[in-house]
């Protein structure tokens, strides 16, 4: 048995004539946390609904732990925990009742019911609200109940659609560390538009726009392997060519008076630039390293294509 838990192949989904996602393909390995990023309406939620079996795909295939979601929905869904955009909680039930019901729906034997409920309550910080009605809980707590519901049967694959919406910063951090710890044993697909969340919790990022994956990389590579740039300010006017001739400089652009943005080749550092500045008395008074963050990348990717489309 391979360790690929979720296999999505050539997946398309149309709402009447509107195409929500087109020809998506990706896979998820055991123990991996995959972050789904995209602007509103990019097709994140639709993709998750299709993977979880709530929507039928128009084209393509989804298989979960080797079970096709259309041909063997029951076996596939048993391997899956899903938190939709709106947590599917019954407002008129108490937290305990609700979690018990979810456990029974996922065929947890009655003898293990209490342990399963206690375990998720402890994992999601719900110990103190067990007897309260879900309708009377705050949005953050309802969200936690939603997460508890998704992990109660210990599924190998967990799909969370914007799990940290409506949480306060402390809860937010708790949920992130919960997701990280889930990632040790389970595979998690997570959608969000909070970019720092992806950097904090995910092993891999996929940015999707207008139903297509436009970027996919591991977050490690994202943090390291990118070309670095520096903002340089000089008192003496200097030609752009002079900067470009320096060792390690990939390209450069002139900004406002006396300022430049200098891009270095990967693994190069601004030694040559500083040396030249000192020798030729350029009057270097600012050297600010700029790291390309996920946010820049996100804005660059989603915007450039948008303007290209126009």
């Amino acid at each position: 048995m391979s360790d690929v838990l979720v296999q999505v192949e050539n997946l398309s989904r149309y709402y009447q004539n509107h195409c929500a996602i087109s020809h998506l393909s990706f896979s998820l390995k055991a123990g991996e946390v995959l972050g789904f990023l995209g602007p509103n309406g990019a097709g994140k939620s639709t993709t998750m609904q299709v993977i979880s079996g709530n929507l039928a795909p128009s084209e393509g295939e989804v298989s979960i732990a080797g079970h096709d979601i259309l041909e063997a929905p029951r076996a596939a869904k048993q391997q899956l925990g899903y938190l939709p955009e709106h947590p599917p909680v019954y407002r008129d039930a108490s937290v305990d009742e609700y979690l018990k019901y979810c456990a029974l729906l996922h065929r947890i034997p009655r003898s293990q019911l209490a342990t399963a409920v206690d375990r998720v309550k402890q994992q999601c910080g719900l110990e103190d609200v067990g007897t309260r009605l879900i309708g009377n809980l705050s949005k953050g707590y309802q969200q936690r109940v939603g997460i508890a519901q998704a992990i109660i049967h210990n599924p190998p694959v967990i799909i969370l659609d914007e799990p940290t919406v409506g949480l306060d910063p402390i809860q937010n951090r708790e949920i992130r560390s919960l997701i990280r710890s889930l990632g040790d044993q389970h595979s998690v697909i997570l959608s969000t538009h909070i970019l720092s969340e992806v950097q904090a919790t995910c092993d891999r990022v996929q940015i999707i726009r207008a139903g297509e994956i436009i970027y996919s990389a591991s977050t490690k590579a994202l943090n390291q392997g990118h070309e670095s740039s520096c903002k340089v300010a000089l008192r003496k006017p200097v030609n752009l060519e002079e900067l470009l001739s320096l060792a390690g400089v990939d390209h450069a652009e002139a900004l406002e008076a006396g300022r430049f943005r200098v891009f270095f080749a990967p693994d190069a550092n601004p030694d040559a630039l500083v040396e030249a500045a000192a020798q030729q008395e350029w009057g270097l008074y600012e050297l600010i390293p700029e790291q390309q963050s996920l946010e820049d990348l996100f804005i660059e990717l989603t915007h450039s294509e948008e303007s290209a489309a126009k």
């Binding site: 979880s52 079996g53 709530n54 929905p73 029951r74 076996a75 869904k77 048993q78 899956l80 899903y82 939709p84 709106h86 599917p88 979810c102 729906l105 996922h106 065929r107 519901q149």
Partner: peptide
């Protein structure tokens, strides 16, 4: 959604 994503 809860019922739809359960193994039922």
């Amino acid at each position: 959604t809860l019922l739809m994503s359960s193994p039922l």
